[in-house]
Simulated assay, not measured.
Amino acid sequence: MESGTDNGLLPGSSISEPDLALIDALQSAPRAPWSHIGRAIGVDATTAARRWERLRADGSAWLTAYASARLATIGFVEIRCRPRFIDAVSAAAVELPWVIGVEETAGDFDLLISAGAADLPTLGRWVRDDIGGLRGIRSARMRVGITLFGEGGDWRMRALPPAQRAELSTPRASSRTAYGARGLTRLSPVDQALVTALHADARMSYTELGAAAGVSEHTARRRVDRLLREGDVVIRCDFAYSLAGLSTLVVYGMQVPQAQLASTGSALARLAQVRLCSAVSGRHSLMTHVLLHGLSGIGPFEKMLADRFPALEIKDRAVVLRTPKRVGWLLDERGRAVGRIPLGPLRP
């Protein structure tokens, strides 16, 4: 990370360096005891908890959970709208519980909608019936996720030195998961209730989780531990990008030779700037989301790609203007969490 200013803020940010370190710690160990989190960032448990509550209360950061890619069929829907209907289409998409995220963009499409379902027929039907008929849409093209190389749950703020982060968890390699690898497997009603509760607050106690799912504390602990151990659920610490000085999110469509797809996707996912990297259907083999400190970072980032990945071609780029919904959370103009629409089960 860049060095801080005298007031403890990174250039262009309004979240202090100590708070960025706290976010980083919670990205590594989202349910760790506050004593462990505090030790990693050099404060006591009470101070760590108090700082987190302040960030959470003003929507600057939040902890959430969701079913992992191995349980879901994911589609990325690129929508072109008549200009005066963009807001209405975006607002309608935000309200749909199977819509994971909505991004308003400047590029070859106006909206990028991330959607999840149990299988391809269900995903296609939901997109066709609930989105395709919205007034003002000129075209809608969906790319289906094939392999996930890295996503928001893998990304790290990198505000902590590696040694301090290692105190919380062992370094994680970027994930490589086939979307829907478990086929038509669905979460049981109890597991779905637990995930729904964790979506609201991923640090919820096992007693609270048991009450939300109608089971005992012991059962809640056992089931949550299994869901996490088997990789069926992802817990992540999220935050308002712009408040951390990361004002620019760019969505790239990239093409690489098939023989290099897996190695390139895995390497891209390990880059500090890459928030999501996925192999997708369609004319571009990779979709990659990149977080930068400003528009001026696009050129240097693309030069770095050209130097490190000579076979990679950038076929499309769209700059995200606004993100009204991210993994079920509703965001304001600055990216702060202001509400939540629980993600629905993968099946109707």
Score class of each variant (00 low, 15 high):
residue 256 V to W: 05
residue 321 L to D: 08
residue 192 Q to H: 11
residue 246 L to P: 07
residue 44 D to R: 07
residue 95 E to L: 15
residue 274 V to D: 04
residue 117 A to H: 10
residue 303 K to Q: 12
residue 268 L to H: 06
residue 316 D to Y: 03
residue 305 L to S: 04
residue 52 W to P: 04
residue 198 L to D: 10
residue 187 L to V: 12
residue 22 L to C: 12
residue 44 D to V: 14
residue 89 V to Q: 08
residue 136 G to V: 05
residue 345 P to Q: 08
residue 178 A to D: 11
residue 241 Y to Q: 09
residue 138 R to A: 05
residue 100 I to C: 09
residue 215 V to G: 08
residue 4 G to A: 15
residue 335 G to Q: 01
residue 286 L to I: 03
residue 237 C to I: 05
residue 28 S to C: 11
residue 59 G to L: 02
residue 239 F to E: 02
residue 312 L to A: 02
residue 318 A to R: 13
residue 288 T to V: 15
residue 56 R to A: 15
residue 271 L to I: 02
residue 203 R to G: 05
residue 70 R to K: 12
residue 190 V to M: 10
residue 168 L to V: 02
residue 276 L to E: 04
residue 115 A to C: 13
residue 264 T to M: 00
residue 86 I to H: 06
residue 141 R to V: 04
residue 66 Y to Q: 15
residue 10 L to N: 03
residue 95 E to S: 14
residue 49 A to I: 12
residue 305 L to H: 05
residue 204 M to G: 14
residue 277 C to R: 00
residue 106 A to P: 01
residue 261 L to T: 00
residue 345 P to Y: 03
residue 23 I to E: 10
residue 16 S to N: 03
residue 51 R to L: 07
residue 274 V to T: 05
residue 246 L to S: 04
residue 289 H to N: 08
residue 348 P to W: 12
residue 49 A to L: 11
residue 327 V to K: 00
residue 18 P to D: 11
residue 92 A to R: 07
residue 237 C to G: 05
residue 280 V to E: 04
residue 155 W to R: 14
residue 213 A to W: 10
residue 92 A to T: 05
residue 13 S to G: 15
residue 17 E to R: 11
residue 245 G to C: 02
residue 21 A to V: 06
residue 284 H to V: 00
residue 327 V to P: 00
residue 150 G to E: 03
residue 256 V to Q: 05
residue 265 G to M: 06
residue 20 L to P: 02
residue 37 I to T: 09
residue 88 A to W: 10
residue 250 V to C: 01
residue 161 P to L: 14
residue 251 V to L: 14
residue 240 A to Y: 03
residue 95 E to W: 03
residue 218 H to G: 09
residue 206 Y to S: 12
residue 273 Q to E: 15
residue 339 G to M: 09
residue 137 I to Q: 08
residue 131 I to W: 01
residue 51 R to Q: 11
residue 31 R to E: 13
